[in-house]
Amino acid sequence: MRVGIVAPNYYPAETGNAVTVRRIESELRLLGCEVQVFPIDRLSGERLQEAVKEFQPQLLHAFHAYHGGRVAYALSKQLSIPYLITLTGTDVYQALCDQRGLEMHGALRGAARLVAFHGCVKKRLGEHLHSLEERTVLIRQGVELPNDFTPVASAEGKGKFTFLLPAGLRPVKNVMFPLASLAELHARHPQLRLEIAGPVLDTAYAAEVMEALESYPFARYLGVVPHDCMGALYRRVDVVLNTSLTEGGMANTVLEASAYAKPLLVADIEGNRSIVKDGVNGLVYHGAAEFKAKAEHLLTDAHLRERLGKNGRDLVREQCCPEKEGQAYYSLYQEILAQA
């Protein structure tokens, strides 16, 4: 089976979309698929069309309905091959709600199938385009599990307590949100640190972040951490944050932190609630006051951190198997091709 993947943000490799695409790409190859990724941030127009024609895929798999879906829709009409779209978050939670929504309708309606990571995304799509709900299937995100679960010394063991916010620098990730609250906690707990890791995806927003960090000496931006180095980073921190305004289901960083048995403190949004149960495998906050209170609870209660981390690790081991994710896509491709 030859599968062409239409991928936005395939570079840098540390973005959430890139991590997802590369994981699925790898699993499909293990299942015997011939896969070629067409990164639309590197290829466009005639070059993209020529590259796809040369590969001759049997179907196209696009990620993000606006950025990837519209390209797959156009290629599908030119080459007379079916395509599917995996909904990744800002396509449903932002683009579908603004002026880009009408541009997406054709791509969404033309897809043989749509894939959502969680029922909350499928439901949100159905609120906008009810007829598409029955063609939307759920495939849970997978996560690569570390080979060794043995804990290593965290920052706390070195006299520091570190919150990690792994996120690309763009407005939807809301990375400046925790600064003021953690500054208040830092006054009472001087061992507190905040580290932000991720690529610059919006230069204007990144400039605002860098300027803000100058006023908070306990916080620092690590820059881009290669994905194969993230495990070491997760191991040495104490709590992992997600402060996003929206997520398309299960954020890779939330799943990865759970795989390393790290307690989570996450924003009260649908995407985070799809994987984090408050008080079970993480803490969910609504607003700055609750964020600060729960951050302090995590900072001062080692037993809570251990329990949340263990529950999170157990959950992803049971429910987020990348092999099952790859097999689910492979079976869906077979179904689409059988009906083509």
Rank of each mutant, 00 (worst) to 15 (best):
R236A: 02
T253D: 02
D268H: 06
L245R: 12
L315S: 05
A288I: 01
L315E: 08
D238K: 03
R307V: 09
E323F: 06
A302M: 11
N252S: 11
L283V: 10
C320H: 15
T243R: 08
E270M: 13
G312V: 07
L283A: 08
H227T: 14
D238F: 03
A267I: 11
K292F: 02
V254N: 12
L265R: 06
G312K: 07
E325N: 12
H297Y: 10
K292G: 00
T300W: 00
V254M: 06
R317G: 02
V237Q: 03
T243V: 10
G312E: 05
D314L: 14
A232L: 12
R273L: 15
Y234V: 03
L245F: 12
A288L: 07
V280S: 13
G271F: 08
E323V: 15
D278W: 12
A288T: 10
K277T: 15
E290I: 10
L241F: 01
G271T: 07
R305E: 01
N242H: 06
D228W: 10
V254D: 02
V237C: 11
D301V: 02
G282H: 05
D314M: 12
Q334V: 05
L241N: 02
I336A: 11
C321G: 04
F291Y: 14
M230V: 05
V240Q: 05
R305C: 09
E290L: 13
S258G: 12
L265N: 07
L245S: 08
N252D: 05
D301F: 04
E296Q: 14
V280Q: 14
L332G: 09
K262P: 04
G287M: 13
A261S: 07
D228H: 14
L255H: 01
Q327C: 02
L332V: 11
S244A: 15
N281V: 09
R305N: 02
L298R: 06
E290P: 08
I269G: 05
A261I: 00
E325Y: 02
K294W: 03
A293F: 09
G326N: 12
D228P: 03
P263Q: 08
L241E: 02
C321M: 07
Y285F: 15
Y285M: 12
R305F: 03
A289C: 07
D268W: 02
K277W: 09
E335G: 09
D238M: 06
G326L: 08
E256Y: 04
Y234G: 00
C321I: 13
E296P: 13
A257H: 02
F291V: 13
V237N: 00
E306A: 14
A259G: 14
L264E: 07
E290C: 08
K277N: 13
L304E: 13
L283W: 01
